[in-house]
Amino acid sequence: MAVMTYIQAITSAMRDEMERDERVFVLGEDVGVKGGVFGATKGLQERFGELRVLDTPLAESAIAGVAIGAAMYGLRPIAEMQYADFMLPATNQIISEAAKIRYRSNNDWNCPVVIRAPFGGGIFGGLYHSQCPESVFFGTPGLKIVAPATPYDAKGLLKAAIRDEDPVIYFEHKKCYQMIEGEVPEDDYIVPIGKADVKREGSDITVITYGLTLHFALQAAEELSSEQGIEAHVLDLRTIQPLDREAILAAAARTGKVLIIHEDNKTGGVGGEVAAIIAEELLYDLDAPIRRLCGYDVPAMPISPTLEKFYMLNKDKVKTAMRELALY
């Protein structure tokens, strides 16, 4: 096992997959010489050359669309969107094309593309460098969507995404890049898409989350355990489409009290669907109403420190919500 940061795990997954499969290549803005604005592709162009680590024109629909064409041919492109906020020009390519290629051709063609998109706030990015646009894509059949929170999951899910026969959107949280470290195996492994993971066992309340907010939940859970003896059961969705129904229901049944947390704004978010799954199957087994702790329903996160801090979730906000639910 090696300890690495979340962003190192992402780079390492791409490097490994490019070594083992010459069909794999990366394209996007600034991914080549510069190694990406966050450094996720650092060193890859030196190793694999200009064609396999391709600096593209500044045009997101082309980055996605060219990748989709190459994927239909049989290559394994990884298209980097510089910020998730900037992927909306590519939305038609992702939703009308990538998501529907297998279905509309009756399984004749397929589109094994990975679209990597740094998302989330807390980095003074303002409205257009902080967004969580997963709900734009969530609910589009044909797409898979993953959002890892730890280096282990980041590497394993990216490798699974690259090997997948269908389009995968890979949301990587910018705030996790340097802040989150963890152990990552030296050997080849994947984390299967569609499988959630219990990150903490507990019997009093269930927290269901993904992305950066997982870490707030785990920190809060430790404090609640030592301070008040409240034991939280924490489920990391890891994949947000398709949702792992069995894991969600098992986690909810474990305590009968469910708090769903995500940074994306509440209305129309993934949490509403998670709550609906639980309500459809387990409503009468619950001991409290399902709660959601999410971003506010404002257009996007503002940059001023007071405003950003107000908008962002943090350990203390999460802890308060968890305590309230435990005491219900």
């Binding site: 629909s61 082309a62 996605a64 669309g65 060219v66 990748a67 989709i68 064409g69 190459a70 994927a71 239909m72 041919y73 049989g74 290559l75 492109p77 038609n92 390519q93 009308s96 094309e97 529907k100 290629i101 509309r104 051709s105 004749d108 063609w109």
Partner: peptide, 20 residues
């Protein structure tokens, strides 16, 4: 190559095949 109805989405795909 399979196509859709929103027009011109196939043009970047053609660049992708040519890149391949």
């Amino acid at each position: 190559v399979t196509g859709s109805s929103p027009v011109t989405t196939q043009v970047p795909h053609a660049a992708g095949f040519a890149l391949a």
